[in-house]
């Protein structure tokens, strides 16, 4: 063992988008145990960068390297929730193989409820835990504080911090205080230099 954290993700001058490029050229690395916060103005391409890592957006330039066999989980901005679904919170965690870790006590109280009968905030923190508590190597979280009141934001911070060393995590948020609370470093996509190297701020 070298003691070096295991590299999970590397972007070299990556430009992502759909029919046309959206993001600036971006270079960064992420290792297991890190939580990388992505900040920046609306429309700068934070969510598009996550989509490119998840294979849902087009790479226009540069390269994206993921550790071979890397298991991904992603929380979209608006988690999918059918209007009617007799699926309990526990069953939702089960289909994501996310029952190995004991959930935070506030979340445990939701596990026997049907997911279509939870509030938007409760469903959001449940889906967040489903992404974090499984065997994922890399977790991508897109605006995880959407729909959340202060109490649920605190729960989200607790969830992201739980067993952090097991995985790497990329978090997109427009809430800078939240990013500072959960991230080991934060990159502002609006402040990327000509080289594509992102200026970052160490947080913890």
């Amino acid at each position: 063992m070298s003691g070096q954290p295991e590299g999970l993700l590397r972007l070299d001058g990556l430009v992502a988008g759909y029919r046309t490029p959206v993001t600036p050229a971006c270079s960064l690395t992420l290792a297991r145990g890190e939580v990388l916060g992505l900040a920046g103005a609306n429309g700068i391409g934070k969510s598009t960068l996550l989509a490119a890592i998840a294979g849902a957006a087009r790479i226009h330039a540069g390269t994206l390297w993921l550790r071979p066999g890397c298991r991904l989980r992603q929380l979209p901005q608006r988690p999918e929730r059918p209007a009617e679904a007799p699926v309990s919170g526990r069953e939702l965690l089960a289909v994501m193989d996310a029952l190995a870790l004991p959930p935070p006590s506030r979340l445990a109280a939701l596990l026997d409820a049907r997911v279509d009968r939870l509030s938007g905030g409760e469903y959001q923190v449940l889906c967040l835990w489903a992404c974090l508590a499984g065997d994922a190597d890399l977790v991508l979280l897109d605006e995880p504080t959407n729909n959340l009141d202060r109490g649920h934001v605190d729960l989200a911070i607790e969830e992201i911090g739980a067993e952090r060393a097991r995985r790497g995590c990329v978090v997109v948020s427009h809430d800078r205080a939240f990013l500072d609370a959960v991230s080991t470093r934060v990159i502002d996509l609006g402040e990327i230099g000509e080289s594509g190297e992102a200026a970052w701020t160490s947080c913890s």
Partner: peptide, 18 residues
Amino acid sequence: TPRLIRARLFPGHELANR
């Protein structure tokens, strides 16, 4: 069944993990 429930609730999961 668990795969179809997962696909309904986390539709991006299959593409992200190829």
